[in-house]
Structures are given as C-alpha cells and as structure tokens.
C-alpha cells in the first residue's frame, strides 16, 4: 500500500482549494487597495480603508453589538444546552430519543421560515430590534447545535467513571462538577466556539428582527453594500477573517490541551 494520496489526487485537491480560496484572496487584495472603487487588481496599495472602517460609526456600532450578542448567545446556549444534553444522554428524561429528534428540527427548517416565525412571535412581545429579542432569535439556532454536540460528548463518556465517583461518596452534583464536566471540556469548547460564530455570522434571522435601534454587523454590512461599492467592506472582511482564525487557534489550544489532559 502507498502512503497518502497519489499525485493526481493531490493535484485535484490543490485545485479545489484554489477555487475555494481564490475569492478570499481577491478580498484581501482589495482591502489594501488605494482606489476609491472596487478594482482588481488595485492600482495602488494603502491602509486608508482600514482607517475609514475604524471611523465608520454604524459599522462599528454593529460590530460591538454583534460581539456582545454573540457572547450572550454563547453563555445562554451553554446554560440551556449542556444540562438538556446531559439529561438526554443519560436518559434521565422520558422520551429522550424523541426530544433529541425535536431539537434537530430548527436545524432542518430554512432560516427564512425561522426568521419570519420569530418576527411574528417577537412582534407582539415588543422584542424586535432589542438585544433580548436578537439573543432569543439566535439561540433558536444555536441551542440545538449545542445539544447535538454535547449529547455526543456525554454519550462517549463511560458511565462507569461516574458510577465510580458516586461509589466513592460524591453527590450527583459533585460527580458532574469533578468528573463529567472536566472530561467534557473539548465538547464544551467546540460548543462555545460554534455558538459564538453562528450568532456572529447570522444574517437572515437578524435581517427579520433587527431595526434602527439594534442592528448587527452582518445587517449593517448588507445595508452598506446595497448603497455603495468601495473597498471598505473588504477591509472589514479581512478583520473578520483574522479574528476568526485567532479564535480557532485559541479553541484548538484549549480543546487540544483538554484532550491531552483528559484521555
């Protein structure tokens, strides 16, 4: 048997990567453009669009709202999703299988339908275009993800380890805190990361329930692109790419570390 992929397969894979990443590369070039319009290749390079971005009030407000929203959604999703997943994985609730399927439903619905439904549900509660409303809307997306991930995480933990802790005198809460939770850190890190990014990136639902009072970054970006075609949005994209890569590296460190410490 030959190790790794053959030359043809390798070439094909490289081609796929080029096709996938080429638009991103174009965005990076344009972000550093000195032109006033989107031209590729740019006639000169500068940091002027990054400076303009920094001074653009609506986008900056959107960014800070999106960051705060993503933080709240992450904490909320873990607070709801982790206990729910534990109950389902340990079959401590009746019809655990049916519940698991039920929590899959929001993932299968088109976000367009979900956005419209949320708008109609939140309007009478006067929660549209509020931080609370946006957080609730996003959590409809993220909680199912957290439950899916954590059910798998808990299910792969051997229950004999928990039984051993109980037989040694640990109360159910202490078992969860000293044994189950530390062993679930990789799953928790992945869940937190995913919730954060899903919320930060969410556009369709946000478009439905955002308003002048509270508008997330993706919504502001859509509005901006509707009116203008300058490299400002490209500069913003580069900032987002760098930030995401940074988060991925941090999570990889935490989760990777947990795996080394854990098993």
């Amino acid at each position: 048997m030959r190790e790794g992929a053959g030359p043809w397969l390798g070439a094909a894979a490289a081609l796929v990567y080029v096709v996938l990443l080429a638009p991103v590369a174009v965005v990076v070039f344009i972000a550093f453009s000195a032109d006033s319009f989107i031209v590729f290749p740019p006639s000169g390079y500068s940091l002027r669009w990054f400076q303009r971005l920094w001074a653009h009030e609506a986008l900056m407000r959107g960014l800070s709202l999106s960051l705060m929203l993503a933080g709240i959604v992450t904490i909320g999703s873990l607070a709801i999703g982790v206990p729910a997943a534990y109950a389902i994985a340990r079959a401590k609730v009746p019809a655990a299988g049916a519940l698991k399927a039920f929590f899959l439903a929001p993932l299968l619905l088109p976000t367009l339908v979900l956005g419209l439904a949320l708008l109609m549900a939140l309007q009478p509660l006067r929660l549209t275009a509020t931080l609370t409303g946006l957080a609730l809307g996003h959590m409809v997306m993220t909680v199912p993800f957290v439950i899916r991930l954590m059910v798998t995480t808990f299910a792969t933990l051997p229950d004999e380890v928990e039984a051993a802790a109980a037989s040694l005198g640990a109360t159910p809460w202490r078992v969860f805190r000293r044994v189950t939770l530390p062993l679930a850190i990789p799953g928790l890190a992945a869940s937190a990361f995913l919730s954060f990014l899903l919320s930060f990136d969410e556009t369709v639902i946000s478009l439905f329930i955002s308003g002048p009072r509270a508008s997330t970054l993706p919504v502001e970006m859509v509005r901006y692109v509707e009116g203008r075609t300058d490299p400002l949005v490209a500069a913003l994209s580069v900032v987002l790419i760098v930030a995401t890569l940074f988060v991925i590296l941090v999570v990889e460190r935490i989760a990777g570390l947990a795996r080394v410490v854990g098993r």
């Binding site: 051997p158 004999e160 380890v161 039984a163 051993a164 530390p182 062993l183």
Partner: peptide
C-alpha cells in the same frame, strides 16, 4: 440509601479511573 452515602468500595471491570 443513595450510592454516595453507602460507603462501599467498588472496583469496576474497566477500572473506571478518572482519566483527567
């Protein structure tokens, strides 16, 4: 009486040591 108040020493077939 729940398991954690029974004071029984249990050695599991899989040993069930705490890996972390």
């Amino acid at each position: 009486v729940p398991a954690h108040r029974r004071n029984m020493g249990y050695v599991f077939q899989s040993y069930a040591l705490f890996p972390h």
